[in-house]
Design a protein around this nucleic acid. Structure first.
Length: 156
DNA sequence: GCCAACGTTGGC
DNA sequence: GCCAACGTTGGC
């Protein structure tokens, strides 16, 4: 099983929204590197750190799980969608998404500050300056450490 | 709201 | 293929 971190702005869709809905489609990824991770490496059952970006505070807010393998993101073909991509071929869709299901919401967000100050998380992608990838792999030791910092119920 | 960092676009 | 201009992300 691989481990991931996925970013979402809580004003748009938070871990609490996911807790309510139980599952969601992860539409709107428009970055090739992020798409490739979803397409090539994500498997059903993979665990995901659910990261709140542009938040107060920003940080890891809970855990989710990949519920469906990558498949074409329909919003790329919808002219009314903010994610519309005129250049995406119908017979070879450029953008993919996965489905994600709720696992756990942390009592308290593990803030970016906390992540940065923890020696055990040295090298974790999300704390690197200028790191904008919205879907990124997480090392097992880092994932486990975040769970510990959060006092999470989820175990690896 | 500002702006640094990064990705994409398009002229050449 | 280079790189300047532009758009986006996301912390602050």
């Amino acid at each position: 099983m691989k481990l991931w971190l996925m970013k979402s702005e809580p004003d748009v869709f938070s871990i609490q929204d996911l807790a309510r809905d139980r599952t969601t489609t992860w539409e709107g990824v428009r970055n090739y590197q992020a798409r490739n991770f979803m397409r090539d490496d994500m498997k059903v059952g993979d665990l995901v750190l659910y990261y709140h970006s542009n938040a107060d505070p920003s940080g890891v807010a809970g855990v989710a799980r990949v519920a469906k393998l990558a498949y074409p993101d329909p919003t790329q073909f919808d002219p009314k969608s903010e994610y519309y991509d005129e250049g995406s071929p119908k017979d070879d869709p450029r953008w993919l998404m996965v489905d994600v299901e709720f696992v756990e919401a942390f009592d308290e967000v593990v803030s970016l500050d906390r992540l940065k100050s923890d020696k055990a998380l040295d090298g974790m992608l999300v704390i690197k300056k200028g790191q904008r990838l919205s879907v990124q792999p997480v090392e097992k030791k880092h994932f486990a450490r975040v769970l510990k910092l959060a006092g999470a119920k989820t175990k690896l």
